[in-house]
Design a protein around this nucleic acid. Structure first.
Length: 649
RNA sequence: GCUCUCAUAGCUCAACUGGAUAGAGUAUCAGUCUCCGAAGCUGAAGGUUACAGGUUCGACUCCUGUUGGGAGCACCA
């Protein structure tokens, strides 16, 4: 039992004895005592005021008097301020707690019998990963770790969007313009090569589209649209809004904001792609051929996806994330169709058919819309694929809950998905969670592929490692190591910087990623935390040297704690609370803030006291023990975020 | 137009989910290495928590409205 629980138990005992009320000990609210007041932990007695009909101040005093008189060995003093009862523990309690932690470092809570699936990453196979994916991956991976620490059985999965028109675009462009180029001949990563052809498709399509816009047919369509007043009014509003925003940018051009431009860009583009474009037609033909298992197309698809997976694999490895099972849309999209058709055949089906043959579900009772699940021609929609994937996963894992780590632009999609799963009667549907995270913006605004401001994941990681290497060379703390060992440490530091920078922000918030700030390694950063660990390792080496001397030294029962020692211990004590909150709210930022707090308190301790003192062996032993407890805790909590702790840096 | 969401120091973020005088980092200024690793530590300065009401012992946190930013409202994914 730790000290928080101890205080809860005795406070509950007080309520029982003085007022005859049975309260579960865990319902007693405990907080770390504010630094401005004397004490270690604080009981919040406000919640007890109503049921005991006492004044807050009186109740606090009664509780404090009870604790100190009944358990003088545990509680040495208290001070009651309004509804706050600030309690001080005996130093011996803290010493015992330290030794207990040393014997039994931080570890996961026992398995609670529940299985949770966490879906994250889930990329399209037509482009390399970018900064947005990095936030997704880091969130998914750390939420999984946090849930494991809290006692859940966790399976990390993803759905790979490996089919569809967008995949065919890069395939078609490679076929036409690639000249047989491969990652080997081009000497770039496979995912980047495929991404290059996806971009190529877009530019080719744009030039085709521009040419067509000059034709009479196109101009007629435009004029017809312009003659509709409602269209124009609505469009003009949008245009004005965009123009206002763009005005301050350096490449602002008034001509970009005409009604004609708007029509061809926002209104007609998809129709043109689907009905007139030669490239569009070729793309759709390719998708049909793919669905018909045309050998040539399948071979090309396999080859290019293979390149992409190779490339993604390298990025995942650098990021340090992994998966228990991969699902491929190309395999699950039919499963969704099967699920819908099965239900449709039952007398009490939740779906219905329209006259044109399409299949729908009416969710208006749940304050959502009517939604198409199968097209008129019987093919699957995006949502249908997700239904099939969920079904498949349920068959594979029989999970109790599922968490989807997906950006907040898909919030509506998941409301619909969860409602359908519920109506289909899946037991896990009540425990489905969309872990929705905000976009990652740059100081200059949104990332836009059209403006070339997308931050590539691989580039960013390389940049960070390079910066860390420069910084490290200036310090020359690693100069004795081999180049390989140095590189390994720089990678650990750079990745920790990136992970902490992203994970310290609450997921739902839109965050600003400033590259120049992210490579800053001072202050509230991953390296700051790692540096605290490195300091504990330095002390660990001292401890090893002194092992013979300290072996027979015992820490006396009346050991007087230094204030700095106690501050560190108070933070160590808070770890379970931080993990629990993080697990309940799916928020790794709780752990990130905890880590920073622990590192900061330890840095202060390190600075304030002399740890190794040959004149004070008992004190030295205790402080080295304490440093080891901090080291264990930093390593454990850091691992929850995917941060590795280096021995040196 | 409808729905959701966010707004805290110049900037980037916290605030134990309703608790004490709203805290850190960064940037600026001033200290601190003959002493366990200075990617550190200490101090100064920086706030009407967007605005207006409400709920109660207590509100950055909950409710209502307003303003401003973001997202969504396809037989796309």
């Amino acid at each position: 039992m730790n000290l928080t629980q101890l205080l809860q138990e005795h406070s509950a005992a007080f309520v029982k004895q003085a007022y005859g009320l049975d309260l579960p000990a865990k319902d007693i609210q405990i907080a770390k005592t504010d630094e401005k007041f004397e004490g270690d932990l604080t009981v919040l007695v406000f919640p007890l005021v109503k049921i005991t009909k006492q004044k807050p101040q009186d109740l606090s005093r009664q509780l404090g008097e009870y604790l100190c008189s009944q358990q003088p060995n545990l509680f040495t003093q208290f001070n009651a301020v309004a509804g706050f009862c600030n309690v001080s523990f005996a130093d011996a309690c803290w010493v015992d707690y330290t030794l207990a932690k040393l014997e039994n470092p931080a570890q996961n809570l026992p398995h609670n019998g529940k299985t949770v699936l966490v879906e994250y990453s889930s990329p399209n196979t037509n482009k390399p990963l970018h900064l947005g994916h990095i936030r997704n991956n880091l969130l998914g991976f750390s939420v999984s770790n946090v849930l494991k620490a809290a006692g859940y059985g966790v399976k990390m999965v993803q759905i790979i969007n490996d089919r569809g028109v967008h995949i065919c675009k890069s395939m078609l462009a490679w076929q036409r313009f690639g000249n047989g180029e491969t990652p080997q001949t081009a000497e770039i990563k496979g995912d980047h090569l495929v991404g290059k052809y996806y971009v190529r498709f877009e530019t080719e399509f744009q030039s085709e589209y521009k040419k067509w816009q000059q034709t009479e047919a196109a101009q007629n369509l435009l004029n017809a649209w312009l003659s509709n007043e409602k269209n124009v009014l609505k469009a003009q509003k949008e245009i004005d809004k965009d123009k206002e925003k763009a005005r301050e940018k350096e490449n602002f051009n008034e001509a970009d904001f005409s009604l004609e431009k708007y029509f061809f860009k926002e209104v007609y583009k998809n129709t043109y792609f689907n009905e007139q474009s030669e490239l569009g037609a070729a793309c759709k033909k390719m998708l049909q051929d793919w669905e018909n298992q045309e050998p040539n197309v399948i071979a090309l698809w396999q080859q290019m996806n293979g390149w992409v997976y190779q490339g993604f694999g390298e990025t995942y490895q650098k990021l340090g994330v992994n998966f228990d099972k991969l699902y491929y849309e190309s395999q699950t999209y039919l499963k969704g169709k099967e699920l819908v058709e099965q239900n449709l055949a039952q007398p009490e089906t939740i779906f219905y058919k329209e006259e044109d043959g399409s299949t729908w579900i009416d969710l208006t009772a749940a304050k959502l819309d009517k939604k198409v699940v199968l097209r008129g021609d019987g093919t699957s929609m995006y949502i249908t694929q997700d239904l099939g994937t969920a079904w498949q996963r349920f068959q594979d894992f029989d999970m109790d809950a599922m968490i989807y780590v997906v950006g907040n632009e898909q919030e509506y999609h998941f409301q619909v998905l969860f409602e359908i799963l519920k109506r289909l009667g899946f037991k896990f549907s009540q425990q489905c969670q969309h872990l929705s995270y905000g976009m990652v913006n740059l100081p200059t605004g949104r990332m836009k592929s059209r403006e070339g401001t997308v931050v590539d994941a691989d580039d960013l990681i390389s940049l960070l490692i390079e910066e860390v290497r420069k910084e490290s060379q200036e310090r020359s703390t690693l100069s004795d190591l081999s180049p390989e060992a140095q590189q390994a440490i720089c990678e650990k530091v750079a990745l920790a910087a990136l992970k902490f920078f992203i994970l310290k922000v609450e997921p739902k918030k839109t965050m600003i990623f400033d590259p120049s700030q992210s490579i800053d390694l001072q202050g509230q950063t991953g390296p700051y935390i790692q540096n605290a660990y490195v300091r504990t390792r330095g002390l660990g080496r001292k401890a090893a040297e002194l092992q013979a001397t300290l072996a027979n030294v015992t820490i006396p029962a009346d050991y007087q704690l230094h204030a700095a020692e106690k501050e560190v211990l108070k933070v160590v004590l808070q770890l379970p609370q931080a993990i629990q909150t993080a697990a309940q709210t799916y928020n790794p930022a709780e752990v990130a803030n905890y880590l920073y707090n622990l590192a900061r308190t330890f840095h202060r301790f390190y600075n304030d006291v002399k740890i190794v003192d040959k004149e004070q062996l008992a004190q030295t032993k205790f402080r080295l023990n304490l440093a080891q407890v901090v080291a264990d805790t930093l390593q454990y909590a850091g691992a929850l975020l995917g941060m590795e702790m280096p021995e040196m840096m």
